[in-house]
Lab assay of single mutants.
Amino acid sequence: MALNTPQITPTKKITVRAIGEELPRGDYQRCPQCDMLFSLPEINSHQSAYCPRCQAKIRDGRDWSLTRLAAMAFTMLLLMPFAWGEPLLHIWLLGIRIDANVMQGIWQMTKQGDAITGSMVFFCVIGAPLILVTSIAYLWFGNRLGMNLRPVLLMLERLKEWVMLDIYLVGIGVASIKVQDYAHIQAGVGLFSFVALVILTTVTLSHLNVEELWERFYPQRPATRRDEKLRVCLGCHFTGYPDQRGRCPRCHIPLRLRRRHSLQKCWAALLASIVLLLPANLLPISIIYLNGGRQEDTILSGIMSLASSNIAVAGIVFIASILVPFTKVIVMFTLLLSIHFKCQQGLRTRILLLRMVTWIGRWSMLDLFVISLTMSLINRDQILAFTMGPAAFYFGAAVILTILAVEWLDSRLLWDAHESGNARFDD
């Protein structure tokens, strides 16, 4: 018995066209964080690309023209004298008006014999932002004059995390709450300039795509075929072959399989920071003279006294001054041990922890910024005066060393310790 099946006739004509040209192939790229070699397709503007294995951002879609970056830099340069030299806060102490600005706080630190601690604050609040705007201006002028731009481009990517104007702005709020127990506070004209400078700096850093600047100024022929001998440069993120001198053909720094002496430098910085954190938390970090009496505060006791007036601000200072430094030390110690013992479990967790400490590390400088600003506000000789204690130097040095330890660690070593050939990683 035959089955009668109805015929289905399409209502619209289906047209099949042959592909007349070869589909576009992607360029081969190595991930600078996990060293995976993959094919990167062509990316349009405002599109980002991520590593298929570790999800690290390979290409950032946010990109401004150099002219727009230069305009932002010149605007920031105009704001800087007002943000640093004009009063941020006014207080009335014992019937006398006192003005506080950024430069005055750094000068008070240096004047009291601790120039190293003052230079830490100076670099993060004044030096690094000033280098940022002058570097962008150098790129703008240098591109037109045919100057060598490689050193500036190499420095810009590392400079971003040292620009800490946003953290200093939080420190202004913390210092205001600490001082309000002794005097009446009012915002100064410099505060508005400083807030504007923070906003412009944040926007500029978020749109400063150094890798795209490398592509514009020093374009290189990408690798179009897969080759395990391809290496990625950690300076400019170019994937290719080393030249005859073993250097990256684009930025001219040595092109090595792994960062040289990464573990040794990381261990040295980490152990030194552990040693410095002990006096930083045991010795007094601030000293207040009130009517001839002397009151010393460690980091913890200062947080407890701050909690009596504002528990939320005390929580912020606790996280930045105690929780973050010790968390960074514990995480980095764990990561280094996992590399030495070739741990194969929990790779995803370790990668996330490394990215976390990379982002939060700079916030530990908050305590030094609060001390710097408070020193310029309260300084009335023996009637009422505020000065920093010996722990300030140890704390600042420990924070900087932990930042350097994270920067010096080559994250690809975590993958080397893991089993080879993993296309995915999980716990």
Rank of each mutant, 00 (worst) to 15 (best):
N4L: 05
P6N: 09
Q7M: 05
I8R: 10
K12N: 06
I14H: 08
A18E: 08
I19D: 05
G20E: 06
E22Y: 08
G26F: 09
D27C: 11
D27S: 11
Q29I: 07
R30H: 05
R30M: 08
C31N: 00
P32T: 10
Q33A: 08
Q33W: 09
L37S: 06
P41R: 08
H46E: 06
C51Y: 00
C51R: 03
R53M: 08
C54Y: 00
Q55S: 08
A56M: 08
I58H: 06
D60P: 06
G61W: 14
R62P: 01
R62K: 04
D63K: 15
W64Y: 05
L69G: 08
M76Y: 03
L77R: 01
L78K: 01
L78N: 05
P81D: 10
L89D: 05
L89K: 03
H90V: 04
G95A: 09
I96Q: 04
R97Q: 03
I106T: 04
M109E: 10
K111M: 04
K111S: 08
D114A: 10
A115G: 04
S119T: 10
V121D: 08
F122A: 04
V125R: 00
V125N: 07
I126R: 15
P129H: 05
I131M: 04
T134C: 12
T134V: 11
T134M: 13
S135Q: 02
I136Y: 06
I136Q: 08
Y138M: 06
L139A: 02
L145E: 02
G146R: 08
G146I: 03
G146K: 09
M147I: 04
N148E: 08
P151N: 03
V152Y: 01
L154C: 03
E157W: 15
R158K: 12
R158Q: 15
E161C: 13
W162D: 01
L165V: 12
L165M: 14
L165K: 09
D166R: 15
Y168F: 14
L169V: 11
V170T: 15
V174G: 14
I177Q: 02
Q180C: 15
D181V: 01
D181S: 02
Y182C: 06
Y182S: 11
I185W: 03
A187W: 13
A187V: 12
G188K: 14
G188H: 09
V189H: 10
G190N: 01
G190A: 04
L191F: 12
S193K: 05
S193G: 13
S193H: 02
S193P: 04
F194V: 10
A196G: 09
L197K: 03
L197I: 05
T201K: 12
T201N: 08
T201W: 04
T201Y: 09
T204F: 06
L205G: 13
E212V: 15
L213R: 14
R216M: 08
Q220C: 11
A223P: 12
T224K: 14
R225K: 13
R225V: 13
D227F: 11
E228V: 13
K229D: 12
K229Y: 08
R231D: 09
L234S: 12
L234I: 09
C236S: 01
T239G: 11
G240Y: 11
Y241T: 02
Y241L: 14
P242F: 12
G246S: 11
R247L: 11
R247E: 14
C248A: 00
C248W: 00
R250F: 04
P254S: 07
L255K: 13
R256P: 13
R256N: 10
L263W: 13
Q264K: 04
K265D: 10
A268D: 06
S273M: 03
L276D: 05
L276S: 14
L277N: 06
L277S: 11
P279Q: 14
P279R: 07
L282M: 13
L282G: 12
P284T: 07
P284W: 08
S286K: 00
R294L: 04
E296Q: 13
I299L: 12
I299W: 14
L306Y: 00
A307G: 14
S308A: 13
S309T: 13
V313R: 00
V313W: 07
F318I: 07
I319R: 02
A320M: 15
A320V: 15
V324R: 00
T327V: 13
V329F: 11
V329P: 08
V329S: 10
V331D: 01
M332G: 09
L336V: 12
L337D: 03
F341K: 12
F341A: 11
Q344L: 12
I351C: 11
T358M: 13
I360K: 00
G361A: 11
R362Q: 04
W363R: 05
S364P: 00
S364R: 00
S364V: 00
S364G: 13
T374H: 01
I378E: 00
N379A: 06
R380T: 01
A385D: 04
G389F: 01
A391N: 02
F393V: 12
F395N: 01
V399R: 00
V399G: 12
L401P: 07
A405G: 13
A405N: 03
A405R: 00
L409Q: 06
D410R: 00
L413Q: 14
W415L: 10
D416I: 11
D416E: 11
H418Y: 11
G421S: 04
A423E: 15
F425P: 12
F425C: 11
